[in-house]
Design a binder for these strands. Structure first.
Length: 255
DNA sequence: ATGGTAGAGGATCTA
């Protein structure tokens, strides 16, 4: 079983890339973030034409998440139960006995901003709900754009990024609190090269200089982590013409 | 020099 996540930064622009990527990689599950599409504009038919189901919750211009899957899912959730939020940032469904939770965590903009305090309220709400989900399902995967670089080794220039949004202590604590519920960061189950990142700013030749951060993650519950045999960043998708600023991330599970 | 690029939408906002 292959699970993947990809912040596409507009599914309208990236649809041909997503279709091609699905054909080549054949994941069972692909979680998308920043679709930037209202539900009536979601390209469900184009995706169905290559044999994939879609579930989605979106809005115009900003945010928007989806799960693309070979099998149809059930027990679909499109919001956190105890956190009123107009922004479409979470979608979950069950595929056989595997619970898939796909998130687009708020970016936070800057520590002094209202968006940062929203991020620090959003993360505990996620934590509370995921804790319940872990009681109901042994096999849980929490995937997406977390907008958090968990450690200094996940940042190209940790001193420059010290206490900047994506790297602050409260954000990293919130990420550790998620892991403490019983998750493993699948990327760190394996020996990986230094300077492995999933996001590079469009500006200042950041990608060419590999000035990136590892902010997209696939967290696996113990039952799934035991079956995980690979976790890889598809950096090639950041090299092509008109790329997303994020690369896809994918795990392979022996189940 | 507080910049720069991309996407949406049609002036700025978000990242």
């Amino acid at each position: 079983m292959k699970l993947a996540t990809w912040n596409v930064n507009s599914l309208k622009v990236r649809l041909p890339q997503v279709i091609e990527w699905l054909k080549i990689n054949q994941p069972d599950i692909l979680c998308l973030q920043e679709t930037k599409l209202s539900d009536e504009n979601f390209p469900e038919h184009e995706i169905a034409a290559i044999g994939y189901h879609s579930i989605y919750t979106g809005q115009k211009t900003y945010n928007g998440v989806a799960i693309i899957s070979k099998q149809k899912g059930d027990k679909i959730f499109t919001a956190l139960p105890d956190f009123l939020d107009e922004q479409k940032r979470i979608i979950a469904a069950t595929y056989n006995d595997v619970r898939i939770i796909s998130v687009y965590v708020p970016n936070g903009e800057a520590v002094e901003s209202e968006k940062y305090s929203y991020k620090l309220r959003w993360l505990p709400a996620l934590n509370r709900w995921v804790e319940i989900e872990l009681k109901n399902y042994a096999k849980v995967a929490l995937l997406g754009d977390f907008n958090i670089a968990p450690e200094d080794r996940d940042v190209y220039d940790p001193e420059m990024w010290r206490d900047k949004v994506l790297c602050t202590v409260p954000e990293r604590d919130a990420f550790q609190n998620l892991l403490s519920l019983g998750f493993f960061d699948s990327f760190r189950l394996f020996e990986k090269p230094d300077k492995s990142y999933t996001w590079w700013d469009y500006r200042m030749m950041a990608f060419r200089l590999n000035r990136g951060l590892r902010i997209d993650h696939i967290l696996l519950s113990d039952a799934l982590a035991k079956t995980c045999v690979a976790c890889d960043i598809d950096k090639g998708m950041r090299k092509i013409e008109r790329p997303s600023d994020h690369a896809p991330l994918m795990v392979e599970l022996r189940i």
